[in-house]
């Protein structure tokens, strides 16, 4: 039915269908908030005092943590009930990618590619330890940055810019201003 990876106009059109359907039926797509919800759901198991049922809060929940207590305890409420739209959406996104890979979509072709992409291997060698350490630090930076920005590539760049949001443009400027030179320095062969 589909080629593993579509040509860019078809891939772009398929992405646009997903973004437009989401805003038509529910709300714009976003992902990075759900990292906080997952963290907090676990944190609440270890320390039940972090989410408090609170009749006076807009969401019905409050938290001693300023971030979780923000916007009437919205994040505390979502972490208390992870079976909500946004969290299930992200789980389903992983399911959709898994299904696509299963149906001859894009997936790592061998053990080597499961560990790192070829572009990394050509530049930094075979060490899985180095790649995993870099991936962990990168993941830390990406999600710290996304939460500071209030959204990620999906929420700010795609959903935001399609709505002409100023915040989307500001986010994209910051992200590409950093990402382009760093990728060029890290991965392009000198000379």
């Amino acid at each position: 039915m589909f080629k593993p990876v579509l040509t860019w106009p078809l891939g772009g059109a398929l992405l646009a269908i997903a973004f437009v359907c989401a805003i038509l039926l529910v709300k714009p797509i976003g992902v990075s908030t759900q990292f906080v919800i997952a963290d907090t759901a676990v944190w609440d198991v270890i320390n039940p005092d972090i989410i408090i049922t609170d009749e006076n809060a807009k969401s019905g929940y409050s938290s001693p943590n300023a971030y979780l207590n923000k916007s009437g305890g919205k994040y505390a409420a979502n972490a208390a009930n992870p079976l909500n739209y946004s969290f299930v959406f992200v789980l389903a996104m992983m399911g959709g990618a898994f299904l696509s890979a299963l149906l001859k979509g894009d997936k790592p072709q061998n053990k080597d590619e499961k560990t790192m992409p070829a572009v990394w291997r050509n530049r930094f060698g075979d060490s899985a330890k180095l790649r995993y350490t870099a991936a962990f630090i990168a993941g830390f930076l990406v999600l710290y940055g996304a939460r500071l920005a209030g959204g990620c590539t999906s929420g700010h760049m795609m959903s935001g810019m399609m709505q002409t949001a100023l915040s989307g443009y500001i986010f994209a400027a910051g992200a590409f201003l950093a990402a382009l030179p760093i990728a060029i320095i890290l991965f392009n062969k000198k000379g």
């Binding site: 930076l141 710290y144 940055g145 500071l148 920005a149 700010h156 910051g174 950093a178 890290l186």
Partner: peptide, 14 residues
């Protein structure tokens, strides 16, 4: 939004 975008961009590239 801008500062967070920069942090995200660094990790995105790595």
């Amino acid at each position: 939004v801008f500062v967070g975008g920069i942090l995200l961009g660094i990790g995105f590239a790595i």
